[in-house]
Design a protein around this nucleic acid. Sequence first.
DNA 1: CGACACTCCTGATGGC
DNA 2: TGCCATCAGGAGTGTC
Length: 272
Amino acid sequence: MPELPEVETIRRQLADRLPGRRIVAVSVRDPLLVAPLAPPDVAADLEGRTIVRVHRRGKYLLLRLDDGDDLAVHLRMTGRLHHSDAAPEEERFQRAVIGLDDGSHLTFSDQRRFGRLWRVPAGPAHWRGRVGVEPLGGAFTAARLAKLLEGRRAPVKASLLDQRLIAGIGNIYADEALFTARIHPRRTGGSLSPQEVRRLHRAIRASLRAGIAAGGASIDSYRDTLGRRGTMQDALRVHLHAGEPCRRCRAPIQKIRVAQRGTYLCPRCQPR
DNA sequence: CGACACTCCTGATGGC
DNA sequence: TGCCATCAGGAGTGTC
């Protein structure tokens, strides 16, 4: 599932190719993608606009339009964005095809139809309160993380997944970061020592950076904009490795459920 | 406000 | 082999 590293991989690819391109034709095949708006209205609204910049907020990909708004795209579980030089062939899970003035096409496809595409006003106001600090940005310090976790009684993993606190961490990188930091996912945020918070801070950034360097994790359906798989799935140390020996201590990796998510950990390296 | 359950979706999986 | 129930989960919403 696309998390920050996967969305960032897509962003970097599109940032090389989309700025300066004018949208000439929009075909929304699945009304759910743009609900509650109607596909023809969305098409008419976007056609003629020029994409000036490709940026990202957490897991939200943002295409800045020349009228000042952002076209926001969220891939959720199984969404994909594909950029092709020619018009794409019809495919079962195609939800929208955006034709650009150089003849290339941006295709949104999504098996499970959780993904969404919508227009938002540019700037931080829209995201304030909904999307928290960028974990790879300068504002995300160990002190900031400590403040976010201070007094929290929820499992620390639940807080890592809460997009209002930190933007872009999903189930994969939460598991990996907690393993690296040697913290049990069910520990409460408020129970972490300053040293543990520092370890977690470093581990979050290291895990996300590793994911970006690997071009994302293609566990299920994630592909980059050229249809290629990432390689981060091969570098995961606990996520999806239930029953296998821990790489650090050889104890069998456990799978438990935390915050309604399948959660992988080493019970010896990550004691409660 | 914080914590948590519920909901949306559909392909994959497991049991019988 | 076929059928059906269950599972997977990001984020928005509702409840206490």
